[in-house]
Amino acid sequence: MQWSTLFKKEMLENWHNKKWIWVPLVIILIAILDPISNYYLPQIIESVGGVPDGTVIELPEFTPAEVVMMSLGQFSSLGVLIIVLMSMGTIAGERKSGVSELILVKPVSFKNYITAKWAALLVIVWGSLFIGMLASWYYTNLLYGELSLTALLQIVFFYGLWFMLVISLSIFYNTLFKTPGLVAFLTIITIMLMSVITQVFAHVLEWSPNNLSSHIFEMLMTDSIPSDLIGSAIVTIAISIILVAASILTFKNKELAE
């Protein structure tokens, strides 16, 4: 009961600060950037000029799966950046301005406070990812070729797990530090470190969350869900749960210490 009140408060707040409007729109832009620009690449090269007459520009024909991977590639960089910047102040900002004290003066459990925030962010991000991929899917079907709706839903679900991990990381740092900028910085550094570690120990870390998108590509190519994708998904979910649990613990200790 208390949880749903807090959750509704978060949803309302995300509506007031316009996150519900700008995050989906920005994610759509990010998703359709590459499919469109790659489609018009020949025209762009032609209009820029500098190519001798009679030159035939041979550009690779992209398959729908490759186009989807372009969108996911942009999500991994720009999309993650947007999510981190959007979530950096969710708790840290409230603690700085003293709002969290107003809430926590009431008998609100730390667990409910943290998980309500986490869930509200998750709904925005998963919703935006769905809308963004829908836009990318529209362009893929329009410009490149058929991609099934089932494949799209699978992509949204599995890639959403990666975004879930990003949110969990951000929430975790939010409970540790009061400065939103520091939270964003540390979240991004951690994600970069994870990707370096995954690359260095590639042969043992087949189930690393960072491999989610390459496993998704495999799924699109083979038209079946590879076991490595399931493995990565489970690892990602597990890490997220651990991070949220750790957030609740650190937040409890911090608040009680103050």
Binding site: N17, K18, G93, E94
Partner: peptide, 11 residues
């Protein structure tokens, strides 16, 4: 986007 992320002040 920059405005929404950095420009809005908290309350």
């Amino acid at each position: 986007i920059l405005y929404f992320i950095f420009g809005r002040s908290q309350r």
